[in-house]
Protein backbone atom coordinates (compact mmCIF):
# COMPACT_ATOMS: atom_id res chain seq x y z
CA UNK A 1 0.00 0.00 0.00
CA UNK A 2 1.74 3.11 -1.30
CA UNK A 3 0.44 6.56 -1.94
CA UNK A 4 0.77 7.65 -5.56
CA UNK A 5 3.84 9.62 -6.42
CA UNK A 6 3.77 13.41 -6.15
CA UNK A 7 0.42 13.62 -4.39
CA UNK A 8 0.34 17.06 -2.82
CA UNK A 9 -1.66 17.90 0.29
CA UNK A 10 -1.92 21.39 1.74
CA UNK A 11 -2.21 22.50 5.36
CA UNK A 12 -5.96 22.89 4.74
CA UNK A 13 -6.33 19.27 3.68
CA UNK A 14 -6.63 20.10 -0.02
CA UNK A 15 -5.24 17.19 -1.98
CA UNK A 16 -4.13 17.37 -5.64
CA UNK A 17 -3.26 14.39 -7.80
CA UNK A 18 -0.99 15.74 -10.56
CA UNK A 19 -1.32 12.57 -12.64
CA UNK A 20 -5.07 12.85 -13.05
CA UNK A 21 -5.76 16.50 -12.31
CA UNK A 22 -8.25 15.49 -9.62
CA UNK A 23 -8.48 17.45 -6.39
CA UNK A 24 -10.16 16.62 -3.09
CA UNK A 25 -10.74 18.09 0.33
CA UNK A 26 -10.25 16.05 3.48
CA UNK A 27 -10.59 16.77 7.18
CA UNK A 28 -7.78 16.73 9.76
CA UNK A 29 -8.10 12.97 10.27
CA UNK A 30 -7.83 12.29 6.55
CA UNK A 31 -4.91 14.69 6.30
CA UNK A 32 -3.11 12.79 9.07
CA UNK A 33 -3.69 9.43 7.35
CA UNK A 34 -2.34 10.80 4.05
CA UNK A 35 0.69 12.17 5.91
CA UNK A 36 1.33 8.76 7.47
CA UNK A 37 0.97 7.10 4.07
CA UNK A 38 3.51 9.54 2.67
CA UNK A 39 5.88 8.48 5.46
CA UNK A 40 5.55 4.93 4.14
CA UNK A 41 3.46 3.55 7.03
CA UNK A 42 1.33 0.47 6.42
CA UNK A 43 -2.27 -0.05 7.53
CA UNK A 44 -1.38 -1.57 10.91
CA UNK A 45 1.11 1.19 11.68
CA UNK A 46 -1.44 3.86 10.76
CA UNK A 47 -3.97 2.15 13.00
CA UNK A 48 -1.50 2.15 15.89
CA UNK A 49 -0.81 5.83 15.35
CA UNK A 50 -4.50 6.74 15.19
CA UNK A 51 -5.60 4.61 18.14
CA UNK A 52 -4.26 6.96 20.75
CA UNK A 53 -5.93 9.97 19.14
CA UNK A 54 -9.56 8.86 19.21
CA UNK A 55 -11.86 7.72 22.01
CA UNK A 56 -13.16 4.75 20.09
CA UNK A 57 -12.50 1.02 19.94
CA UNK A 58 -9.89 -0.40 17.60
CA UNK A 59 -12.44 -2.36 15.56
CA UNK A 60 -14.40 0.78 14.63
CA UNK A 61 -11.18 2.59 13.83
CA UNK A 62 -10.03 -0.30 11.66
CA UNK A 63 -13.30 -0.29 9.72
CA UNK A 64 -13.20 3.49 9.16
CA UNK A 65 -9.58 3.36 8.08
CA UNK A 66 -10.31 0.52 5.65
CA UNK A 67 -13.19 2.57 4.18
CA UNK A 68 -10.97 5.62 3.81
CA UNK A 69 -8.17 3.62 2.17
CA UNK A 70 -10.69 2.00 -0.18
CA UNK A 71 -11.84 5.48 -1.18
CA UNK A 72 -8.24 6.60 -1.76
CA UNK A 73 -7.75 3.56 -3.98
CA UNK A 74 -10.89 4.35 -5.96
CA UNK A 75 -9.73 7.91 -6.46
CA UNK A 76 -6.32 6.65 -7.62
CA UNK A 77 -4.57 8.36 -4.75
CA UNK A 78 -3.10 5.02 -3.74
CA UNK A 79 -0.78 3.42 -6.25
CA UNK A 80 -2.88 1.05 -8.40
CA UNK A 81 -0.42 -1.81 -7.92
CA UNK A 82 -0.47 -1.56 -4.17
CA UNK A 83 -4.03 -0.42 -3.43
CA UNK A 84 -5.23 -4.01 -3.08
CA UNK A 85 -2.33 -5.17 -0.90
CA UNK A 86 -3.27 -3.37 2.25
Amino acid sequence: MKISQNIAISENGFLFNPATGDSFSTNDTGKEIVRLLQEGKNQAQILDAMEGLFATDRASLEKDLADFLYMLGNYRILDANTAQSR
Binding site: P18, A19, T20, G21, S23
Partner: peptide, 21 residues
Protein backbone atom coordinates in the same frame (compact mmCIF):
# COMPACT_ATOMS: atom_id res chain seq x y z
CA UNK B 1 -0.82 18.17 -21.15
CA UNK B 2 -4.18 19.18 -19.72
CA UNK B 3 -7.22 17.47 -18.30
CA UNK B 4 -10.60 19.12 -18.70
CA UNK B 5 -12.30 19.92 -15.40
CA UNK B 6 -15.49 21.46 -16.75
CA UNK B 7 -16.94 20.69 -20.15
CA UNK B 8 -19.62 22.74 -21.90
CA UNK B 9 -22.59 21.20 -23.67
CA UNK B 10 -20.56 21.61 -26.86
CA UNK B 11 -17.85 19.44 -25.41
CA UNK B 12 -15.42 22.34 -24.99
CA UNK B 13 -13.19 22.78 -21.97
CA UNK B 14 -14.39 25.65 -19.80
CA UNK B 15 -11.84 24.81 -17.13
CA UNK B 16 -8.81 22.56 -17.09
CA UNK B 17 -5.61 21.78 -15.23
CA UNK B 18 -2.09 20.91 -16.35
CA UNK B 19 -1.18 17.39 -15.30
CA UNK B 20 1.93 15.29 -14.83
CA UNK B 21 1.89 12.32 -17.16
Amino acid sequence: PMRKLYITDKGKAWAGVSIED
